[in-house]
Amino acid sequence: MTNSPVRSPRLLLTATVVLVMAGVILLTVPHTLSAPATSASPGATAPTSYPLTTASRGRAAQANGSAPATASTTSTQSASASALPPHGEGVAGDAVIQTSLEDAWPADLAADDERKLLVAGRDLLRADATGIGRAKWPALFGNPDQAIAPAFATARFRIQAAIAREDGSPDKAVVHLVWAGADRGGTYTDRRITDWYFARTSTKGGFTWTPQPRT
């Protein structure tokens, strides 16, 4: 009876140690088992997702039997630019510029509308650059006697090419003009670009194309 109090603490201590060791073993076993799952063979890498690049999109389009739109557009623009005559070519190169404009912007207006717009666009450009005919459009140029002096000489002014096209709707149009001229200082430059915008307005007899103020 006198030894029982001594054994009890020893038994409790022994049991505690056993439980602690068992707990350590249980905590260690999952890590040991999971190690093979997380380890990888030498040289192996996790898959990485990359965004599609222009080149990969182009290859995908070629695989589907179609060419990428960006490449086609760039090629067309490069071809058009290389087909233009050099600066200073003179009247001989105007026809090439006209053809280039027509190829870049196919016609989308009725022939009669296009003709009227081209006449008005050419006259407006001439009036704006040289001062000739400004009295026809007082709303745009004001009083001819008080208007700003023309910036370009009449003698060397030349319209090289012009087209008229819709501008976003059937009731709007733009006349795109390429021209050449010498300023008051005598500097001559060709292939200048000017756009005149028009709006279709109703009249008693139908409608007319009205030039819009330049901003």
Rank of each mutant, 00 (worst) to 15 (best):
Thr74Ile: 08
Thr74Phe: 00
Ser75Leu: 12
Ser75Gln: 15
Thr76Gln: 14
Ala79Gln: 15
Ser80Asn: 13
Ser80Lys: 10
Ala81Cys: 00
Ser82Gly: 06
Ser82Cys: 01
Ala83Tyr: 07
Pro85Phe: 08
Pro85Leu: 07
Pro85Arg: 08
Pro86Tyr: 01
Gly88His: 04
Glu89Pro: 00
Glu89Gly: 08
Glu89His: 12
Gly90Leu: 11
Gly90Tyr: 05
Gly90Lys: 12
Val91Pro: 08
Ala92Gly: 12
Gly93Pro: 06
Asp94Ala: 10
Ala95Met: 09
Val96Asp: 11
Val96Ser: 13
Val96Pro: 01
Val96Thr: 15
Ile97Thr: 15
Ile97Asp: 12
Ser100Ile: 08
Leu101Ala: 09
Leu101His: 05
Glu102Thr: 09
Ala104Arg: 14
Ala104Ser: 13
Pro106Thr: 09
Pro106Ala: 09
Asp108Ile: 08
Asp108His: 07
Leu109Trp: 11
Leu109Val: 08
Ala110Ser: 14
Ala110Cys: 04
Asp112Asn: 13
Asp112Glu: 15
Asp112Ala: 15
Asp112Thr: 13
Asp112Trp: 04
Asp113Met: 04
Glu114Ala: 15
Arg115Thr: 10
Lys116Val: 09
Ala120Met: 08
Arg122Ile: 11
Asp123Pro: 01
Asp123Lys: 10
Leu124Asp: 01
Leu124Ile: 02
Leu124Phe: 01
Asp128Phe: 05
Asp128Tyr: 07
Asp128Pro: 00
Ala129Asp: 02
Thr130Arg: 04
Ile132Leu: 14
Gly133Pro: 04
Arg134Ser: 00
Arg134Ile: 11
Ala135Arg: 06
Lys136Pro: 00
Lys136Tyr: 01
Lys136Ala: 15
Lys136Arg: 15
Lys136Ser: 12
Trp137Lys: 09
Leu140Thr: 00
Leu140Phe: 03
Asn143Val: 04
Pro144Cys: 06
Asp145His: 03
Asp145Lys: 11
Ala147Lys: 03
Ala147Asp: 08
Ala147Met: 06
Ala149Val: 07
Pro150Gln: 06
Pro150Cys: 06
Pro150Tyr: 05
Ala151Val: 04
Ala151Met: 08
Ala151Glu: 10
Ala153His: 13
Thr154Ile: 07
Phe157Ile: 02
Gln160Lys: 01
Gln160Pro: 01
Ala162Thr: 00
Ile163Cys: 03
Ala164Trp: 02
Asp167Lys: 11
Asp167Trp: 08
Gly168Phe: 02
Pro170Phe: 07
Asp171Arg: 12
Val174Gly: 07
His176Leu: 12
His176Gln: 15
Leu177Glu: 02
Val178Trp: 05
Gly181Gln: 04
Ala182His: 02
Arg184His: 04
Arg184Pro: 03
Arg184Glu: 04
Arg184Cys: 05
Gly185Cys: 00
Gly185Met: 09
Gly185Lys: 12
Thr189Ile: 08
Asp190Ile: 03
Arg192Phe: 09
Ile193Gln: 12
Ile193Arg: 14
Ile193Cys: 00
Ile193Val: 13
Thr194Lys: 14
Asp195Tyr: 08
Asp195Arg: 06
Tyr197Thr: 14
Phe198Asp: 02
Phe198Thr: 01
Ala199Asp: 15
Ser202Gly: 09
